[in-house]
């Protein structure tokens, strides 16, 4: 744990000194997220949908793009290999590298949600479910970031290799927004971004059938199951393909 914290501290220092990553991770998604509040974005019906779009934007830029660039450049510069000569476990090295962009997503999502609440003068039905929805997106996109990084030679190459996940998450989010969030629509949930969107909308709007714990659980369960399955598949793929040595 202490080695992970040491890596997180170092990665935060590196992010602070990287103007490009700073703009990609902080400025761009935050401006876009704020923009969603004041406009009438496509497919977005209700503030829960706006929050889902904001979180999807954060996941694409702050986590996936920045995370893939960080992993690829650290590997290309043999930094990951160097860190592995320490006592830190491989998991600690990887979590330390991607932990800062993941944390930024959560932090920015909280700020944007607060802005959305203030601008719309409404409140989510459950902040906890909103947090669960955001974290489900972090889990799925985080795993896919390791997969993308496995095929990325350098930070510049990440401009190409991040594209598939960006498209898939955008498609999953948009598709989910076009469907009722209380529908058990497994094809939608199977696309990264779909389950997260459903959970975030549930968190904002609340269950459509009842209000007790059982109602929350029954409507959240499909999204949570989809999240676990997608994260597990992403993790298996990353373990299979990810290499510590620079890619030729």
């Amino acid at each position: 744990m202490s080695t992970t914290i040491a890596f997180l501290h170092t990665e935060l220092t590196l992010l602070r000194r990287d103007t490009t990553a700073w703009a990609t991770a902080i400025a761009l998604p935050f401006v876009l997220g704020a923009w969603w509040i004041t406009t009438d974005p496509p497919f977005a019906d209700g503030m829960g949908a706006i929050v889902a779009l904001q979180v999807a934007t954060l996941l694409i830029f702050s986590l996936h793009t920045v995370g893939t660039m960080a992993l690829a450049s650290r590997r290309e510069q043999l930094v990951l290999k160097r860190w592995r000569t320490s006592q830190a476990s491989p998991l600690s090295v990887l979590m330390g590298t991607i932990g800062v962009p993941a944390g930024l997503v959560v932090l920015q999502a909280a700020v944007l949600t607060a802005l959305t609440m203030a601008a719309s003068d409404t409140a989510p039905a459950s902040v906890t479910m909103l947090a669960v929805g955001a974290l489900s997106g972090v889990a799925v996109v985080g795993a896919l970031t390791f997969v993308a990084a496995a095929f990325t030679r350098s930070a510049e190459h990440a401009m190409i290799t991040t594209f598939p996940v960006i498209i898939v998450v955008m498609a999953g989010t948009a598709w989910s927004l076009m469907r009722p969030f209380d529908a058990f629509d497994w094809p939608v949930l199977a696309v990264p971004g779909g389950a997260m969107t459903q959970l975030l909308q549930l968190g904002w709007e609340g269950p459509t059938d009842g209000s007790g714990a059982a109602a929350w659980l029954s409507q959240a369960a499909p999204g949570l199951v989809a999240t676990v399955v997608l994260t597990a598949l992403g993790t298996i793929a990353a373990r299979h393909w990810f290499r510590w040595e620079p890619r030729p």
């Binding site: 080695t3 170092t10 510069q77 043999l78 290999k81 160097r82």
Partner: peptide, 24 residues
């Protein structure tokens, strides 16, 4: 290593302080 593998944007002092935390 044959090739240095340290982050270019850190300072030597920061790298060594990190390393002491990575070899507890």
């Amino acid at each position: 290593f044959q090739q240095s593998g340290l982050p270019a944007e850190l300072t030597p002092r920061e790298v060594l302080r990190l390393w002491s935390r990575l070899t507890p």
